[in-house]
Design a protein around this nucleic acid. Structure first.
Lengths: 213, 213
DNA sequence: GGTTTAAAGGGTGTTTTCCCCATTTCTATA
DNA sequence: TATAGAAATGGGGAAAACACCCTTTAAACC
């Protein structure tokens, strides 16, 4: 029985070649490949064969490794997560462990180290690399601090229009609402995102992944 | 007769798995792998079988891709060099081309693109990726609508401010220019980016990576 | 039943953005 | 030298964005 592995990395070349490498190891089977967290969410949807292990990159567009790990921990707690990044900054590492990863590997390690880590995490649930030391279970809980605001469906809809070239008048037309109502959404979103301008709203919406480029 | 390829990348995991991928392509044969420029120099020494193509990462410790490319161009001019990086900043790209590379690929391309680029560079000596345009010998200013426009330093500076919560009046203050002047930049950037609002300008600047979130 | 909360609509005024117009200055090049 | 072309400057005005002030309606809660 092969160990089922999932990969998330925005660099397709790395993703595909790493996938190939894992397949050649005989003990592993790559069951899902994704370019970022959003992509992963789509691809896991309705999948009955979930991976045992996920290799997750930290820096990715749209939905990064930290968000992805947090999402996986919440929705698929059986999947053990190994962070795989060239980002060796403490903040990133700590955030990943807080989000729920079991190990943190740097991309400059030798493939044999990755293989060892995969086996260890699969068997014991954790792996301490030379560079990054972890106390299993030390970090945990402590949900997100600056959690994204909760938006009503219409606010989300409105937000998508805001992040485009439409004027509020045009948005009102599109949404079949009066200009005043739309202005109300604007004000409430300014409040929720803590911004003072449409540009600021757009940027925050992008940062908080309510919309994408 | 297989095409002989050399690889230089400090991320061992990427290096090894990419090497494996190239080997599986049948048309290619990896004859040298190195972790940085110095490593490459050592490994090429006294080698009678030189690679036809070199895939060189840009950001590496000890001796980076730019130095490596310059060294290769000088000492092994027969080797055609393809830059392979996640660094999409203009300065890095231009430096690599000046150092003598034939093509510049981002690591997030699909493997098929890499394969195509390898064949093209081997046959024709150059490859124009969608993102990075090159004319053998010198850059071409292509009229491609999707290609990033050329910005003056002040326009770039102005653009960074636009992608923030500052008003044009405040930007004028920051840049020590009159409001009318920055309005001129605004207009010229609207023209260059093909947009008609500040929000559109921000989004295009993000898409074309003149600024980041 | 009364109160609260939220969505939707409305009015008004200020500020900012956007788009014309035109002038000066400097530089590069025929 | 002349001229063409940018970069910088300015005025004025229409439209959009923003900030407050409100009322109505309807569901939700005590």
């Amino acid at each position: 029985m092969k160990i089922k592995v999932g990969l998330v990395d925005d660099h397709q070349l790395f993703l595909k070649s790493l996938s190939l490498m894992l397949e050649t190891l005989q003990n592993f089977e790559v069951v899902v490949e994704a370019l970022n967290g959003q992509d992963l969410q789509r691809k896991l949807e309705g999948k009955n064969e979930l991976p045992d292990l996920m290799l997750v990159d930290v820096n990715m567009p749209l939905m990064d490794g930290i968000e992805t790990t947090a999402w996986l921990t919440e929705h698929h707690p059986s999947i053990k997560i190994i962070a795989l990044s060239m980002n060796d900054k403490d903040t990133a590492i700590i955030k990943m462990f807080k989000a729920g990863c079991c190990a943190y590997l740097l991309k400059d390690v030798h493939p044999s180290v990755l293989e060892k880590a995969l086996h260890e995490v699969y068997k014991k649930g954790y792996y301490n690399s030379d560079a990054i030391q972890l106390n299993p279970g030390h970090f945990l809980k402590n949900p997100n601090k600056d959690s994204p605001p909760t938006l009503t469906p219409k606010e989300q809809h409105f937000l998508k229009y805001v992040c485009s070239e439409l004027t509020y008048k045009q948005i009102a037309g599109e949404m079949q609402l009066s200009e005043r109502t739309v202005d109300g959404y604007r004000e409430s979103l300014f409040q929720k995102f803590g911004v003072q301008s449409r540009v600021g709203l757009c940027l925050e919406a992008l940062r908080k992944e309510f919309v994408s480029l």
